[in-house]
Design a protein around this nucleic acid. Structure first.
Length: 247
DNA sequence: CTTCTTACA
DNA sequence: TGTAAGCA
């Protein structure tokens, strides 16, 4: 658990000491722990500070931010489980599509860049035609796929995986959103006082889903990789790394 | 030298 | 939001 002096905190969040003090005075930031005269901040403060800056940039007034923060604190359980706050400081904008030429694709996928696979990728919505070339709706998936192929996994199987992955993720994300609908956005029509809260929850639903899935994916990777590959293999590889370091 | 407070713009 | 003075 990292600790920050006010200058470190401001730097880490990309703002100034002055502003940190202002947010603190306006009670948007929780009071720091004091060590004599100097204030000691935690990671929680950093997360909160990033949140505040984000909301400020989106045009929220101090008072509105304060309201939302207290709203979250009163109904904390969901936010805790899903890491609500952790998300908001990050850029969770939707991935930007990227144009890719046929030449690039051929370089990435070699001879497996075939009309059949292209058709399949287009059916899966991974690739779209644009003039002579293509545009990838998810450069990250494209790059991940290219890496798998370069490691020797057949592109056909990579595409199978992409399809399966999309279905599974749709399923889980659907569940999550449904949970929020059932437990948080309980009214079909919110009362007038609830409208701002509802609106904020809706705005954060996408980053919230992404955060939950991201966290789950990280845990899964850590757990599943040794499970599937076996501890023996992992140990052997770790051992050879030691050899490499010594050399 | 850094932090904090207060004040002014 | 930046800057400055005076203090600890």
């Amino acid at each position: 658990m990292a600790e920050y002096r006010i200058d470190d905190l401001a730097r880490a969040a990309g703002t100034t000491v002055r502003n940190v003090r202002v947010y603190q005075d306006r009670e948007l930031l929780p009071p720091p722990r004091r060590q004599g005269r100097t204030a000691i901040y935690s990671d929680a403060h950093l997360v909160r500070l990033r949140l505040i800056i984000n909301m400020l940039e989106r045009g929220y007034a101090f008072a509105q931010i304060k309201e939302m923060i207290s709203a979250w604190e009163s109904g904390r359980s969901l936010g805790d489980v899903l890491g609500l706050e952790e998300v908001v400081g990050e850029s969770w904008a939707e991935e930007a599509p990227r144009a890719v030429t046929a030449t690039e694709l051929r370089r990435m996928f070699g001879k497996q860049f075939s009309p059949g696979n292209v058709k399949r990728a287009m059916e899966l919505g991974l690739l779209e035609r644009r003039g002579r070339g293509f545009v990838s709706q998810s450069p990250q998936l494209l790059d991940a796929g290219a890496e798998l192929v370069s490691l020797g996994v057949p592109l056909g199987e990579v595409l199978d995986l992409a399809e399966q992955l999309q279905q599974d993720i749709d399923h889980v994300a659907g569940h999550l959103v449904e949970m929020v609908r059932r437990h948080v956005l309980t009214r079909p029509v919110p009362t007038e006082e609830e409208v701002p809260y509802y609106s904020d929850v809706l705005q954060r639903l996408r980053p919230l889903v992404m955060s939950a899935l991201n966290a789950a994916a990280a845990r899964s990777a850590a757990r599943v990789i040794p499970e599937v590959l076996g501890d023996r293999l992992i140990e052997m590889v770790a051992g050879s790394e030691e050899h490499a370091k010594r050399a």
